[in-house]
């Protein structure tokens, strides 16, 4: 499989601030990739560099196999993007906005009406009237932003916080839309704070912290069992007696046991006459993984000590 995105030693400094500090990121074609990290960890700057909006201080970017920003004119028509929230000309209607964005780029006006209607239909704005975007709700703007990214049937979708401002039903719709697009062959890359979103949607995640890519891993690996089993039972004392030495932790009726095979553990407990109310292999949540790997976001500024100077 080829990579749709490949960066090598990517660095961006703004004056004395290093926003991105040497990122080597590879995103293979056809997957759904989630980019995570606290505020100010460099996600947006990274995405801006991928799109040629911000010029790298050092390092290389390859997008769809072509060097950026040198080949921007050839690559970007094949990419749909939403960077740091949607934006539109507030005095014009959503449809007029899409027509102008469509007309601004290469490709000519043939089939424009159809393209715009299709994009609006896909994001659930098919029946939109002539109201100016100024009067749109946050959710409608968000949908319009995604419609703009979809206009030219891109091979790669780069979306920053695509579900921002959407209600739970809207979030579900967007998830379905992104899955459908992905299954039709579009590579989807999204950055989000909503770990649940990424958890539900992505095959693979990258975690950024303080300008570095601290993790790049498949979700199946992250979700692999930790080798511990969470056990809920009415008689915890009996469990401790039976599994002497394997019990890691006990609080009330919850016992944490070190054991690789939950099925065998269950059989052993039942054979010993211990009643089991609940038994699950422990898996790390994405939240745990991310919180372990990352520090505070740059939006938190403590008053004292080392924390402030991190």
């Amino acid at each position: 499989m080829t990579d749709v995105i490949a960066t090598r030693g990517l660095v961006k400094r703004f004056g004395r601030v290093t926003a991105v500090a040497g990122v080597d990121l590879r995103i293979p074609a056809g997957i759904r990739f989630g980019l995570l990290g606290p505020n100010g960890s460099g996600k947006t700057t990274l995405v801006r560099m991928l799109l040629g909006l911000v010029h790298a201080t050092a390092g290389e970017v390859e997008l769809l196999g072509e060097p950026m920003p040198r080949r921007a004119a050839r690559v970007l028509p094949r990419v749909g993007a939403m960077v740091e929230g949607p934006a539109a000309w507030g005095n014009l209607s959503g449809r007029a906005n899409l027509r102008l964005i469509d007309a601004a780029g290469p490709g000519g006006g043939r089939g424009r009406r159809q393209r715009v209607d299709d994009a609006l239909e896909r994001v659930g704005l098919g029946g939109i009237d002539r109201r100016p975007v100024r009067a749109y709700s946050l959710g409608m703007r968000q949908r319009l932003g995604i419609a703009a990214a979809l206009l030219r049937a891109p091979e790669l979708l780069l979306l920053d916080e695509p579900t921002n401002g959407l209600d739970p039903r809207g979030i579900g719709e967007m998830r379905d839309l992104l899955v459908a697009l992905n299954e039709a062959g579009t590579t989807v890359v999204l950055s989000s704070h909503l770990l649940g979103e990424v958890d539900a949607l992505c095959h693979r995640v990258g975690v950024m912290d303080a300008g570095r890519l601290v993790l790049e891993e498949d979700m199946t690996m992250l979700r692999a069992p930790t080798g511990r089993v969470l056990l809920r039972t009415p008689d915890p004392a009996a469990v401790v007696a039976e599994l002497n030495g394997r019990v890691v932790e006990r609080s009330g009726d919850l016992v944490v046991v070190r054991h690789d095979d939950p099925a065998a553990l269950n059989a052993r407990l039942v054979a010993a006459g211990v009643r089991v109310a609940e038994l699950v292999p422990e898996r790390r949540s994405l939240e745990q993984v991310v919180l372990e790997l990352t520090g505070h976001g740059a939006d938190r500024v403590d008053t004292s000590g080392n924390e402030a100077r991190r």
């Binding site: 799109l51 028509p77 990419v79 934006a87 964005i101 601004a104």
Partner: peptide, 14 residues
Amino acid sequence: SVGTLRYLLVRPVG
């Protein structure tokens, strides 16, 4: 200031 600049540039408009 309204943010449309970035969308024009990634459209792409040289």
